[in-house]
Design a protein around this nucleic acid. Structure first.
Length: 741
DNA sequence: GAGCACTGC
């Protein structure tokens, strides 16, 4: 993102005096002095992120410790720190600094520190009372990022028990929570009824219009893609100058929409159609996260005179990136979301309707510089029936294994009664406990084991960490470190127009590795590129995403450093293994991926999935995803695989796949089949009645058919195949008609 | 035929 050039000297000073927050300066300073907790709310443009830390600095808070400000995103932490250091006339890294992963720009002088919420959480692990800080500001709390939610709970818990709070501190910690105007009462109540400060913002009105095109039943991708294209073109031909931002769910949809826009925009006759004579052409730009950086930069350039810009984007444009000059929004009403399914114990990526608050946020992107318009392609009925009020916070829809392990390491034993702003369902917590117990991170009483203590040190999902530590204890960490790194970054395989050629190259890379599965393929790509003299050119030749691979290199280095530190410091477990390398590697993976197991279609009838097309094996193979319990002891040696993740679109796909033997899982994780619900409940909290447990067990049994599995079956049954075929034929026909005319 | 949202440590 291009950084704005800030004027130096008095200019800046005057500018910040004009911000809406300025007139509340003294009151805010006093309020932080008087209260342990404070909620500050204000829309974008109120200046709270840049000014409040400076006010607290001026009020002398720095003399008792640092002023820490958290952001959910790296870019925000860095750019805001840069700006504030200029406003305070100091060089970045001195009085004002920032810290994000791989980039610590702070010194001993740093008293105003911007950082990501994940960084502060890591600091809490080392220093639970945050003795270095006098004030902690949690910014963008309304976004409800997982880390911010955890921090909120931890700070509330620490500050509300006086002996904990004063331990190792001379002056009590102050906590300020900053949020957009949404749900601030709830925050205040959560923090013991603390005062709420409201600061007016500086945004322009945005008018929203519904259309009747998409009703509650139209959830088909091709339908809404077509509709957003139509609406975007309508806007282009009938509205005054100003750029357009279209929201869709993913790369393929965006590319389809862009193709359609190109095709249709060409045929517009600008002599008659366009009201505002300044607009004579349409510049169509796709925008999604995995796009090359230089292409992304193009988005921020102002369009040539007389040309209207139309950006077709994923949700990345909702919060992460701000594009200037946007005056019109076209909102598809859908988003791709990663949800956790606690019954199957897996995460599932799926397309869902956005929430009403998210729709408002999307609309708000049109009102940054002047009044704007938002065109919703869905009907009021869709709004009412399909869209929830608020987006379910991340903590209620993701796997909690990492969170629970972190909390346990911080000494929070009772993870069910931990003060969550929004409590995750109990079965999510129980399931996380179960998985942690099964992979030996906690013991029967819910206490963190040695292995668990080692695991929490790694910035990886617990399963992957478990596999890595297994490898380290067997002396083969060199096999797992690159794989863990590769799975932590965005997809490294590029599939451009020349898909077949790319696939062929990718497959060659994998096959040369000897034993071939998707995990060894990752290893092979990593090693081959590392060994290459010109890695960036090598990537281009092989259709590999160089930016992603480069970050995999630095992640690998970081993981290796952590591992070395742990191996030196503590009595690190060591084991022996006699067998071939391929088996060793796959056994290690089993210890982490025991939740993600599938086998070739057999007798049991629960859920089916396809191996994703990108897999090196690439058989169009139907698999059966299985929760272990029912399959234990049954044909255990049949074609089993473990997989990294699960994708639900028109079908269920498993991605990054590796064949295994089921008895490895059985050997490596003897606890896999021994846990029962009662034990877990007692692990989770001290007292639990038998009645409650019984209730839970019955509920569990009733839920045997999960939502996913129901969806699966529906999608796999004959009628839906027929429907899909009919839709395909219809599309084909339309395409032909389109060409003919 | 269909085929990888976005963050973060």
């Amino acid at each position: 993102m291009a950084l704005p050039k800030w004027r130096k000297g008095p200019g800046i000073y005057n500018e910040s005096k004009n911000l809406p927050i300025y007139q509340h300066k003294a009151t805010l300073q006093q309020a932080v002095k008087d209260n342990s907790f404070l909620v500050v709310t204000g829309e974008t443009g109120s200046g709270k992120t840049t000014q409040l830390p400076q006010y607290l600095h001026q009020a002398g808070f720095w003399s008792n410790g640092k002023i820490g400000i958290t952001q959910p995103r790296r870019v925000a932490a860095i750019t805001v720190a840069q700006r504030v250091s200029q406003e305070m006339h100091c060089s970045l890294g001195r009085e004002v600094g920032y810290q994000v992963r791989f980039d610590d720009c702070t010194t001993q002088d740093t008293v105003v520190k911007y950082m990501t919420d994940g960084c502060l959480l890591r600091e809490i692990l080392a220093d639970p009372v945050l003795s270095q800080y006098s004030v902690v500001i949690l910014d963008e709390a309304h976004e409800r990022s997982l880390n911010t939610d955890i921090l909120l709970g931890l700070l509330k818990q620490t500050l509300s028990s006086p002996d904990k709070a004063s331990k190792g501190r001379c002056v009590p910690l102050k906590v300020v929570v900053m949020s957009a105007t949404l749900e601030t009462d709830k925050l205040s109540v959560f923090l013991g009824g603390c005062p709420v400060f409201t600061i007016p913002g500086r945004t322009f009105p945005v008018t929203s219009k519904f259309s009747c095109a998409i009703g509650p039943k139209d959830t088909e991708s091709s339908v809404y893609v077509k509709e957003v294209v139509k609406v975007a073109l309508d806007v282009h031909t009938s509205e005054m100058a100003g750029d357009i931002l279209v929201f869709l769910t993913g790369q393929s949809e965006i590319e389809k929409a862009c193709d359609m826009l190109y095709e249709k925009a060409e045929s517009i006759d600008y002599r008659y159609d366009v009201q505002d004579h300044k607009v004579e052409g349409l510049l169509i730009l796709p925008l999604y996260g995995s796009m090359p950086t230089d292409q992304q930069k193009q988005i921020f350039q102002p369009p040539p005179p007389g040309i209207r810009k139309c950006v077709v984007a994923t949700n990345i444009a909702a919060t992460s990136l701000t594009i200037n000059g946007i005056k019109y929004i076209v909102d598809s009403g859908f988003v791709k979301q990663l949800n956790h399914n606690s019954r199957v114990g897996m995460d599932i990526l799926e397309v869902v309707p956005i929430s009403k608050s998210e729709a408002l946020q999307r609309a708000g992107r049109a009102g940054r510089t002047s009044a704007g318009k938002c065109f919703r392609i869905y009907s009021p009925a869709f709004w009412e029936k399909c869209m929830p009020e608020y987006t379910v916070p991340e903590i209620q829809r993701t796997s909690l294994t990492a969170v629970i392990l972190t909390l346990k390491c911080l000494g929070v034993h009772d993870v069910i009664r931990f003060p969550y702003l929004d409590r995750p369902e109990e079965r999510f917590i129980l399931e996380a406990l179960k998985q942690l117990y099964q992979c030996d991170a906690i013991d029967r009483r819910g206490k963190v084991t040695r292995l668990g203590e080692l695991m929490v040190e790694f910035p990886l999902p617990p399963g992957l960490t478990r596999a890595l530590l297994q490898a380290a204890s067997l002396g083969c960490e060199d096999l797992l470190l690159p794989v863990a790194a590769m799975l932590s970054v965005e997809n490294i395989f590029i599939r451009p127009e020349k898909q077949k050629e790319a696939d062929k190259k990718h497959r060659q890379l994998g096959v040369q590795a000897g034993s071939c599965n998707d995990f060894t393929m990752l290893l092979s790509v990593f090693e081959k590129c590392k060994a290459s003299d010109a890695p960036s050119a090598w990537c281009k030749d092989n259709y590999i995403h160089w930016r992603a691979l480069k970050s995999a290199f630095s992640v690998e280095t970081q993981l290796r450093e952590i591992l070395l530190r742990l191996q030196k410091k503590r009595d690190f477990p060591m084991e022996k293994f006699d067998g071939n390398k391929s088996e060793l590697f796959r056994r290690c993976l089993c210890t982490g991926y025991f939740t993600n197991v599938a086998r070739r279609y057999g007798v049991l009838h629960n859920g089916w999935a396809w191996i994703h097309e990108h897999s090196i094996k690439s058989p169009k193979c139907i698999l059966h995803i299985s929760p272990h319990r029912s399959l234990f002891d049954q044909e255990a040696q049949l074609d089993w695989v473990i997989f990294h993740d699960l994708l639900v679109t028109s079908r269920i796909y498993i991605r990054t796949v590796c064949p295994i033997r089921y008895d490895w899982v059985k050997d490596l994780l003897p606890k896999l089949h021994e846990v029962d619900v009662y034990e877990l409940s007692s692990v989770a909290r001290e007292e639990v009645t038998d009645e409650e447990v019984a209730k839970w067990v019955t509920k569990e049994a009733a839920k045997r058919q999960t939502d996913v599995f129901k969806k699966l079956e529906k999608r796999n049954d004959e009628s839906s195949v027929r429907d899909a075929r009919a839709r395909y034929l219809q599309r084909k026909q339309e395409r032909q008609q389109g060409k003919a005319s």
